[in-house]
């Protein structure tokens, strides 16, 4: 027994110390690690590059519910060039980080940003930030986003994790190492046998595993499961939740940059079918609307204007392909009606 333990420890030390040292070298960080309560330094700026190139006047941000919205239709109806960025499985933390780095830091930021949200996501910054969602969040965050980290991630992080992240570089950089490892294995064989590089594999994955390929019934299950984590009565206490959310930051940053932030509530199929809402949700939405308008933003609830039909949906939140353009026109028109006070092109 003792012999086995000694051999184990010897091997463990021989493997563990060099790998930790390799992480320190690879990411050029000092030991022990500092600034652990923030995101890692590097983030992707390709969305910003697209905004710089296209110079839209309207940017739309949201989760997969806006995937089918038609950019051209939006541009036509709003009479402003529009770019739509749909990030499946994202919440307010992702949207704010995207807004902060890709939109605000663009060479010519747009006049208006539309945030499409569902339920209480705007006041729940820790919605979809753990596990695999963290990897996506890291893509749009930098080490200077400690404020966002504290609200979105930090409140669920305990002292033990802090300790491990500070003293075990391998643990602190686990997401990055994991991603690199998976990318290398995933891209290796297609690259070697088919000369298909990382971008080519990405495209193949996008085509085969795109959210639009997901079974509609299973989407409903997934959505129910996702919504279960946020649709709790305590999350609809607006007054309590807003102060610990990212909403004040979004509004403040937008105001400072002279951008109009517009918050558009995603209309569910059940709403389009006429299902009434519970009092708690209605009260929350009223308070949200009031808060947004008080702070220089615009709140739009397309369900109140009507127009969308249940048959336009593929599942509870996604529009179907056949009706995507028509539904986009209806939603864009509702938004346009609220923007009458703004100058056009």
């Amino acid at each position: 027994m003792a012999k086995k333990l000694i051999i184990f420890l010897a091997f463990f030390i021989a493997i563990f110390i060099p790998t930790n040292q390799a992480v320190l070298n690879r990411y050029a960080v000092q030991y022990p690690l500092e600034n652990i309560r923030s995101f890692k330094a590097d983030f992707r700026a390709d969305y910003r590059a697209v905004i710089n190139r296209e110079q839209p006047r309207v940017v739309v941000i949201g989760d997969s519910a806006i995937r089918e919205l038609n950019e051209a239709v939006f541009s036509d109806v709003l009479e402003r060039k529009t770019l739509i960025f749909s990030a499946p499985g994202s919440g307010s933390a992702y949207w704010y980080l995207f807004f902060r780095h890709q939109v605000l830091e663009a060479q010519k930021p747009p006049d208006m940003v539309l945030f499409f949200f569902r339920g209480a996501t705007l006041t729940e910054p820790d919605y979809l930030v753990d596990g695999n969602y963290r990897i996506r969040l890291e893509e749009v965050a930098s080490s200077e986003d400690a404020d966002v980290y504290a609200l979105a991630v930090g409140k669920n992080q305990n002292a033990l994790v802090d300790l491990l992240e500070r003293y075990l570089p391998l643990f602190a950089y686990r997401s990055e190492i994991y991603q690199q490892l998976v990318a290398q294995v995933r891209n290796g064989l297609p690259g070697w046998l088919l000369k298909c590089d990382a971008l080519c594999v990405d495209n193949a994955f996008d085509q085969v595993f795109d959210d639009s390929q997901i079974n509609a019934v299973l989407w409903e299950d997934l959505l129910r499961e996702l919504d279960k984590s946020i649709d709790k009565p305590e999350n609809y206490d607006f007054t309590v939740r807003v102060s610990s959310s990212l909403l004040p930051l979004i509004l403040k940053d937008a105001r400072n940059a002279g951008i109009l932030p517009v918050f558009v509530r995603v209309e569910y199929r059940s709403q389009a079918a006429g299902k009434a809402e519970d009092d708690l949700t209605m009260e929350y939405m009223q308070e949200l609307q009031h808060y947004i308008q008080q702070n220089g933003g615009l709140y739009i609830d397309p369900a109140k204007s009507g127009g969308l039909e249940p048959g336009m949906y593929r599942d509870e939140i996604h529009l179907n392909d056949e009706n995507a353009a028509a539904a986009s026109a209806i939603i864009a028109q509702i938004i346009a009606n609220h923007l009458d006070f703004l100058p056009r092109n």
Binding site: F8, F11, F12, I15, N156, Q157, L170, R174
Partner: peptide, 24 residues
């Protein structure tokens, strides 16, 4: 096995550190 098994566990523990995502 006397040597290989502890070596395997040492490697497993190292990999566990990398794969220990925040949500299981």
């Amino acid at each position: 096995r006397v040597v290989l098994e502890p070596a395997f566990f040492a490697l497993a523990l190292t990999l566990l550190v990398i794969f220990a995502a925040s949500g299981m």
